[in-house]
Design a protein around this nucleic acid. Structure first.
Lengths: 233, 233
DNA sequence: ACACTGAAAATTGTATACAAAATCGCATGC
DNA sequence: GCATGCGATTTTGTATACAATTTTCAGTGT
């Protein structure tokens, strides 16, 4: 497809599939067959199978023995679970990052903030640009986890953030009220740059809690809207 | 081989391989080839490949593009990383478990404690029995995570515990000083049964920190012993 | 003795062929 | 009309064949 050719087909397929799933091109609940994907990407089933294995391990698809794969449908319960863990891991990672960040790291974080700002300032944004802002905002957390120096923590947090991104993108981004908490991100970066671990950690935890509440509120609104539609018809 | 026949060969191979790795039958740092394992288990390379994929995702083996797989060697740094995360996740899981445990759950935990006690009381234990005690002690944490009701937390903690088990088993269990902190486990279970979430969480966090210090002390002793051997020869 | 070349061996990456199992549809019997 | 059973189709699970690449090691030249 129009993807950068990776070293191995397996990685290429994995990346493509993951992008398609996270962005909702393949909506949650869809049944996906190895043959279809293989045909669509012009490869054999083998690399597709291995990609599916990894995606299943990531929790983005669920596969039952001889029954094929289905793009995971996240319910509100999984969302709560993910955010409870994020609060722990993100908080700790941010504390560590504040203690470990080099000047180069700090510059990198500031550049991401600026990029986020730039994307937010575009008038009449397309869906793609909205997604880019969301992605940069989440990437900020990934980079903070990387800076923390704890590779295992970084890996686990990336996995959770993928799921959160998937959930927000497929369920909520259509809402106009959606908005990245840019000020909170800026405060966190500021605390990291100041080397204030305690403050950075507290801000990060509060930010995760705030995001959770924000999303839950939007989910409620969506649910209300849908039941309104149902009653009206 | 002498494993219970699972539904799919892939799962069977995964289970067998994981057991062989975690118990050190295949020592860390060994090169493992698909063909060897396939021959040893009398299956084709395909299920072995998929098992390797999952094990790589688990972090138990590391594989480079066309270079084969190597059983991951955990260094002391990874160990510290794992325990930092365990402190967060185990603490939270134990808090949740204290709030959520049913009578059946409590009975299950008490039964595991009793089993641990029984294994510890065996005189002149074999290596296998030592490993069983370790396994039950770690399983206790897995079950607590399960009881917490947060499936994602449970899954992540299981992954980390596998690595810790692997590390302890391959690096430290030969030491006679090794000893499961049975009293601490008992205290944690007690707090869970009493429904005291704050106390249970605090105990769990302290227990993880204590385990970490214990292991680090043993590693130091091992290192001292090895340098003593080197100087003597 | 050492470095470099190049072919052979070993090993993974990919494709494909075949087997087993599940699902779907249809017909048949009650 | 509905349930049930049987067969055809679809889809995954496994094995194997082939391609690509890396490593190894022997041989040669300096």
């Amino acid at each position: 497809m129009s993807k950068q050719p990776k070293n191995t087909l397996r990685d290429s397929v994995y990346t493509s599939l993951k992008a398609m799933i996270v962005t909702g091109q393949i909506p949650p609940g869809s049944r996906v067959t190895e043959s279809d994907i293989a045909a669509k990407l012009n490869v054999s089933r083998t690399p597709v199978r291995e990609a599916f294995n990894r995606l299943e391990r990531d929790g983005l698809v669920t596969g039952r023995p001889r029954q094929g794969y289905v793009v995971t449908e996240f319910d509100i319960n999984m969302f709560r679970e993910a955010f409870a863990i994020r609060e722990l891991l993100d908080g700790h990672a941010t504390e560590l990052a504040a203690a470990a960040a080099t000047d180069k790291d700090k510059a990198r974080l500031r550049a991401m903030l600026a990029e986020c700002e730039r994307l937010a300032a575009i008038p009449d944004r397309t869906t793609k640009e909205k997604f880019q802002e969301l992605e940069v905002g989440i990437d900020l957390h990934r980079v903070i986890a990387e800076i923390s120096g704890n590779a295992m923590l970084h890996g686990m947090l990336c996995g959770i953030l993928d799921k959160c991104q998937h959930y927000v993108w497929t369920e909520l981004l259509w809402l106009d009220e959606w908005k990245i908490a840019r000020d909170e991100h800026a405060e966190i970066v500021e605390a990291i740059c100041a080397g204030d671990a305690a403050r950075a950690g507290a801000l990060a935890r509060a930010h995760v809690r705030g995001s959770r509440e924000n999303v839950l509120r939007l989910l409620q609104a969506k649910s209300d809207y849908q039941s309104f539609l149902a009653k009206a018809s």
